[in-house]
Design a protein around this nucleic acid. Sequence first.
DNA 1: ACATTGGTGTAACATATGTAACGTAATGCC
DNA 2: GGCATTACGTTACATATGTTACACCAATGT
Lengths: 312, 312
Amino acid sequence: MESHELKIRAAWLYHVEGLTQAQIAERMYLTRRRVNEFLASALEEGIVRVSFASPLAAGMELESRLQGRFGLEAAVVVPTPADPQLLHQALGRGAAAYLDRLIQARKPRSIGVGWGATLRETVTNMTPASEPGIELRSMMGGLTRGSEINTFEIVRGFAQVLKAQCHYFAAPIYAESPQSRDAIITQSVFERIFRQTCEVDISYLSVGDVTRQSLQVRYGLPAGTDIGDLIAVGAVGDLLGRYIDAEGRPVAHPLNAQVLAPDLTDYRRIPCRIVASGGIHKHAILTATVRAGLATALITDEESARALLAGG
Amino acid sequence: MESHELKIRAAWLYHVEGLTQAQIAERMYLTRRRVNEFLASALEEGIVRVSFASPLAAGMELESRLQGRFGLEAAVVVPTPADPQLLHQALGRGAAAYLDRLIQARKPRSIGVGWGATLRETVTNMTPASEPGIELRSMMGGLTRGSEINTFEIVRGFAQVLKAQCHYFAAPIYAESPQSRDAIITQSVFERIFRQTCEVDISYLSVGDVTRQSLQVRYGLPAGTDIGDLIAVGAVGDLLGRYIDAEGRPVAHPLNAQVLAPDLTDYRRIPCRIVASGGIHKHAILTATVRAGLATALITDEESARALLAGG
DNA sequence: ACATTGGTGTAACATATGTAACGTAATGCC
DNA sequence: GGCATTACGTTACATATGTTACACCAATGT
């Protein structure tokens, strides 16, 4: 009997009949060492194949590839809904499930969150818990106008569902001028808020694109600031209200000096930086985010994942 | 995240990414106990499937089923050749490979062999070895006429290829009468041969059908014995020259009292009884053999195996 | 004919897996 | 609301697996 047949037979006895390697060795008049080698070789050569009777496995392959490609500690890929209106909800569910387990396992001291439709849907899908020891914080100032969303409610919603402590970032996302920003952050009340925001264990944000689909673009930019000017200097989208280019660097624009949020250097020191966003319109900002290592965990949809992986 | 998705993910990390269960537990914020249960459950439910990219696996499934169905210690199933003329060769190869390993592993003291086309092909395919401590014996008398095969050469061939000791059963397969048989086996030389034949560690035989394809039927039966008479009393074929019925019992016919070979009671005491035969014409005798527990190991072809398993 | 290489037996050992016992929390049912 | 059942965390332990070192033998190449 040539070794090929021995290999098949050993693999059969192991995977189908459930014999141990020692039993197979006895049955086939081989050494356990030979059996072990045959089994490993059968898998390696693809003679024995493991397959998954579940569509979820496709998403897991994408997650795996995203992690490998971009050095992410975690990736969650949810199916892309047929109706684009449902994308925030799908991302929210995926993110909530991930956060549920993360919070339970890591027992973080403080969590900083951003705002946006995805964040809001995440709150809706979180499993209620009782975590009085956790501090929920806003990572940045909020929108001061726009009826679609009350950005301050996001952190409150998280705190409520987790029965955690709630700390608002009671300021607008942008100061009126760089000078005004400097004056604000030197006030001791804001100085402490800033410091505490930089020291969270986990940050959970979404990124914004530069189209009018973005809440930020529609309601957040100060009077006199035009998104076209930001695009002109290379902006592909924003993280923490700060517009960044395709390499993940803040663009040269006065707006970036008005942001009431940690700068990117401080942000990078946060150990666990979760970003949840999706949709083809966000491809450029997502690409910049993962390439620049601004996220340690990415939550996105299948289409966006494929687009990310298709990039050079 | 519901447990189904956790299960898929755990299975993915284990089977595809090669993580240990402890690593998966850490990665997924679970206990190792849960991971272990998920993996077992994924296999049990068929979510994870192990498949074989090899036609040999089909034969192995048949072998497994044959063993289970008929309580065999071993079964070897070779592919059925398109040309029936090649069946003996295919069986001979399968048997030789099995014997090679068996002899190497068991180091038997003595082996008793029958004769027939399959046995001859087996010799041809044996791997040469040097086993001076092994005794090769005929299990029964030989044919005294017929130019197709020299039955005494079979045992000599085995002994030669194994460099073992050779012991002929120097007698015809049938005595002229029951009285003549009794007179022969009480001769001390034959008495000792009989005893030693009954005490082999391994017997390797084929079975004969009742058609004229059988060497036995064409050349072995004594003058005045008609195969029709044997069929008439229920014979479905022969083992060791002894015709048996569908239940594996010797038929009531004077021929069975003339056989110069161990009787079936003595034969059953041999620890390892290998039978190698195939072909649809041997279905009845193969069925009788395995049902009656006359073999502990069966070597046959795929078609014959399916026919055996299809039986009630 | 000899040197080299590859395969594998043997034994030991580190690590991974599988399972069991016990206790606690969650869930379901009445 | 109480009780029974189930699920699972934790820990321990037995068994299985995976790998390594060394030696030996067979195969291969020069």
